[in-house]
Amino acid sequence: MATVPMMHALLLAGILFALGLVGLLTRRNILFILMSLEVMLNAAGLAFVAAGARWGQADGQVVFIFILTMAAAEVAVGLALVLRMYHRTKTLDADRASEMKG
């Protein structure tokens, strides 16, 4: 079975992370921000798995499972916050929720 070179996998992870970051910075809708965050998380996970495969260690996959679990929890809390925010501001625009302005 042909193996994917680690460089390729890392490159993919890097591109995904950059995409996620760009999405996070340019999107104003809080739901899209959350989705971009997921993309970034999974990019990091992919990097772990690739590195684990390169060294023949299971640790990379273990960490990915951790990331997955954390992502699930984060989404649960994040969506709840989004709901609360929508109740308060009647909008999903992250820029409008700026009451903590200094």
Binding site: L24, R28, A94, A97, E99, K101
Partner: peptide
Amino acid sequence: RRTETGQIR
């Protein structure tokens, strides 16, 4: 204070 914009992005 100016850095504290309230803009999460």
